[in-house]
Design a protein around this nucleic acid. Structure first.
Length: 340
DNA sequence: TTTCTAACCTAATCAGAAA
DNA sequence: TTTCTGATTAGGTTAGAAA
């Protein structure tokens, strides 16, 4: 399975949303509306979203793709021009159905809200679905709006790197010289995410986020680095091993089942999350990236798990182990010197 | 394996909010 | 009024699901 980003900038597997499969009745409803109006306004899209149980942004995508697919058939309406620009042509559905507020109300992102995605943007201009979902939860802004924000930011700052790094998913085959910082996700701003598991404690193919099996040669080296308000913890070796295609980084496969409207606030916070504040108190005194001396040896218990089943990773175990790494990290960290 | 199409991207542009 | 930036579009591309 390839993990590279392509020359066109399209991220590959694991970074996308799970593909929506519309059933026949959903297609029928969409088709009916499409025939009525191939450019549904926000109110219509939201209504459709409710009606068929699909997120509004997916509805938006369906109409966009469907317009493209219908174009060669020449159904009597022009797709050659942007709807917002082609008003000079007579387009009856616009006259008949376009409400006063055809667009989605402009999302106002406050300075404090934008701080989080700005940090993420610094690390990665092409956040994958997991990252976007996390950011959405952090900011309270819809995931689709988060995606929009990143798109606009890339347009606004074209001078910066255009290489999609797609967080850690690029792994060992990623662009050379990619720094650890570029791929980090600010976990600290997530409260208690790590213990939010499906009851089975394992993931199936149908779930949105698949944790990567951790091969024995992958050694996690938690790294604490300085951020505006963060303790960043991530496996480093997945970034460094040149020939370890299976050493997918955990960060991009956050083992959370992120479903719309889900509340993570009542989940049990792991050790490192509980100690986040302690770290934050000291991070302002520091200006350097910290790294642990050595936590590179895989846990013996985990090796045992590996032998049992690489396909069904016990996530609660991984996260327990992860917390232990963080505990060790904090134990070694001398606040006076700001280093371990 | 092939085909279809959802999801993702860029670029251009519009339009509302803030300065 | 101008500037900034979120929203929308077409078109190119990738990759998952079904045939």
């Amino acid at each position: 399975m390839g993990l590279n980003s392509t020359a066109s900038g399209i991220p590959q597997k694991e970074t996308r949303k799970v593909r929506t499969v519309y059933n026949q009745s959903q297609k029928d409803i969409l088709q009916k509306w499409f025939e009525h109006n191939p450019y549904p306004d926000i109110a219509t899209r939201e209504q459709l979203a409710k009606e068929i149980g699909i997120p509004e942004y997916n509805i938006h995508t369906w109409f966009k793709n469907h317009r493209r697919n219908q174009k060669p058939l020449g159904s009597g309406w022009s797709l050659g021009k942007d709807q917002t620009q082609g008003q000079e042509e007579h387009q009856p559905w616009v006259q008949e159905t376009l409400p006063k507020e055809a667009r989605q109300a402009q999302t106002s992102i406050t300075r404090s809200e934008s701080n989080i995605p700005v940090q993420a943007l610094d690390r990665n201009q092409f956040p994958d679905i997991a990252t976007r979902s996390i950011l959405a939860k952090q900011t309270g802004i819809q995931e689709s709006r988060t995606q929009m924000w990143f798109q606009n930011q890339r347009s606004l700052h074209p001078g910066q790197s255009r290489k999609p790094v797609n967080s850690l998913v690029d792994g060992p085959n990623k662009t050379p010289n990619l720094t650890v910082q570029q791929n980090q996700i600010d976990l600290s701003t997530l409260s208690g995410w790590s213990h939010h598991f499906p009851s089975s404690n394992s993931f199936s193919k149908n779930q949105t986020f698949l944790p990567a099996p951790l091969p024995s040669h992958v050694s996690f080296v938690p790294c604490v680095s300085q951020g505006p308000s963060v303790v960043l913890v991530q496996p480093m070796q997945a970034m460094q091993e040149e020939n370890s295609p299976s050493s997918l980084a955990l960060m991009n496969y956050l083992p959370i089942s992120l479903t719309p409207g889900e509340d993570l606030s009542n989940t049990h916070a792991p050790f490192w999350s509980q100690n986040q504040e302690k770290c934050q108190n000291h991070k302002e005194q520091m200006g350097t990236v910290l790294q642990l001396k050595d936590y590179s040896q895989p846990h013996l218990e985990y090796r045992k798990h590996q032998l049992q089943d690489l396909g069904q990773v016990d996530l609660s175990y991984i996260m327990q182990w992860w917390d232990e790494c963080c505990q060790a990290l904090l134990a070694e960290w001398d606040p006076q010197e700001g280093t371990s």
